[in-house]
Amino acid sequence: MPNRLLNVRQELTTRVRVVLTVLAFLLPLGVWSLVSYVPVIWGPMIKVTESGDVSWLKPGQLMDRHEFAAQVDKTIAEGKAPPAGKRANPIFLPAPHEVGRALYTAFTTKPVLKGDKWLHESIWTSIRTIFWGFVISSAVGVPLGILCGAFFSISRLTEPFVDFVRYMPAPAFGALMVAVFGIHLEPKVAIIVIGTFFQQVLVVANTVRKVDGGLLEAAQTLGARRRQLVLRVLLPASLPDLYNDLRILLGWAWTYLVVAEVVGVSSGITFFINQQAKYRNFDNVYAAILIIGFIGLTTDMALGFIGRRLFPWKDNRPSRLRNFIVRLFAARDICAFADKPLVVKA
């Protein structure tokens, strides 16, 4: 069996694929659970259960294991009642069930300060930031990338500069964007645009350049002109790859979210995370981070699902039935047309 799993470039059966996908999530969860519920594995802290005669220790308090041991020795040496405690993990590593609970309670907990946002409001702000950043970037970046891919002159005129700006980290523009756009949503959207746009132009241009030149030649011999070569050949030919590019770039846009949201007045999910960390509600912090992951993964899966339906001609795993039918007719067809009378064209 392990032998079969490690065949080079061999497709897996559906069952094996599903099992491996589930394992991909279960394994990290397992490690996390093990560390959380079996504190002896790691447990660098002690959770105090009884303070004994040490007045400054409170039950429930967390303390470094070695310091605690020293305190116990010292108390015994002084002839007083030593404190008691059990091994525990640091506060920044809550157990899975705590985070699981937080996934729900984080939404139902009222914000501590008046004016702070609920979690769902924070998430909505983040999604809006990403959405507008990505839409604005794509509205300019995709057409420009296509033009760069189609015309070498436009590519020469654009790409060297784009390449240059690409190396400037987007957060470096933070202060500038605040000066230009104020402190609310706009500078954050601008950071996402800066982070995405320049990559986008280059990626799209490259994808369009990869279109088989033979298709352009064929179209030309069929009478296609410049405009038609771009709109009727290059564009549809590269569309599935462009779609996938955009999926990947959307993922990049998410990675710019956190730096964008600390620009100006901190907002969105980043503000929520920072706020919760300040209150040391690390279960909520994990919950918020996981939610970003969920949103990203489900969007990507949804886009992938839609993509497979948008481009049926690109399906490299056609249904077995369709394959069978095509092959059946292909074999028969070779003999079929030989003595067939042809229609005379008027």
């Binding site: 033979g214 030649e217 064929a218 179209a219 011999t221 069929l222 009727r232 549809p236 001609w313």
Partner: peptide, 29 residues
Amino acid sequence: GPDRGMVFQGYTLFPWLTVTQNIMFGLEM
């Protein structure tokens, strides 16, 4: 130009178009 049609060794059919749509291409141009 369309006065000189060409058939290539590598087919060069438009993969996103069906058989009919491929044949229509020149007419639409």
